[in-house]
Design a binder for these strands. Structure first.
Lengths: 143, 143
DNA sequence: TATTGTTATACTCTATAACTATA
DNA sequence: TATAGTTATAGAGTATAACAATA
């Protein structure tokens, strides 16, 4: 092993470490900023984000990798804020569909707009870098 | 605006969205896995990660972007587990230094090793992609 | 007076287990 | 019996405000 040319595994680990640091440490202030701006904790933001259409409680729990009992509380709080409502599902009366209210839909749109605003360090990259990132992570998401 | 060549702002937003999805949605199971594996919640992992050397409570709070009252509880729980201890700081008796125990140091090493293991989707990238990622995010971290 | 860290309080998230209504 | 969702409970994270010890 040549010290000047690290193994591929080392290279991957270095790159991964830098990315973790960027997203989970340097990016933390932005998470806190959105939390305060919308007065929505991350799990509430996640539920709002999932509601592109009405979805059953269980489906929300599945996508959030948490127990469905948590979803009850999260949806309760979103309901108290007037952002979502529970509806009956046709065909199975055990199922409750969570649907956005008009206010919830407006907040979801604004939240997504803010969440997807790239930070300066990304926005300033070259077209070549941006295209490469887009390709790498779109591909990673479909694997 | 040509539909086939999106503006740079759009390109940046697309790339950023894919990255957010990859790290915060697709990556969530790995976060939960480490949580269970070490029985350490993310904030406890973060404190352990910061302790490359003994640090004052306030410095931990600063790096975690949270109130110092939270650190009291987190350090209490790490102390009960025998992973860290509070020490007096020389020169200012108000300050308490949080230091790893031997057991804490061993767990920190293992935790960092596991955290920095790149997922398959990254490990499988070409050398060229990996080098590009390394360059982009190292640079982003120093800005 | 100002700063460091703790305590008190309230709310949210998280999991597990027991429960209700429905299938 | 099995499933969808809720309730009960306990532990952890978060913030704010009030406090003790020290500077």
């Amino acid at each position: 092993m040549d010290v000047a040319s690290p193994s591929k595994a080392d290279l991957a680990r270095e790159a991964w470490t830098a990315m973790l640091e960027f997203f989970f440490v340097k990016g933390r202030p932005k998470v806190l900023e959105l939390w305060r701006e919308f007065d929505l904790m991350p799990p509430q933001q996640m539920v709002l984000g999932l509601l592109d259409e009405p979805r059953p409680m269980g489906e929300l729990a599945h996508h959030m990798h948490c127990d469905s009992s948590n979803i009850t509380g999260i949806v309760d709080r979103l309901t108290e804020r007037g952002l979502v409502e529970r509806r009956a599902a046709e065909g199975d009366r055990r199922v409750k569909l969570v649907a956005l209210t008009d206010e919830g839909r407006a907040m979801r749109t604004e939240l997504i707009r803010r969440r997807t605003e790239p930070p300066e360090e990304i926005a300033a990259l070259s077209d070549s870098d941006l295209r490469r990132l887009q390709r790498i992570f779109s591909s990673a998401l479909s694997h």
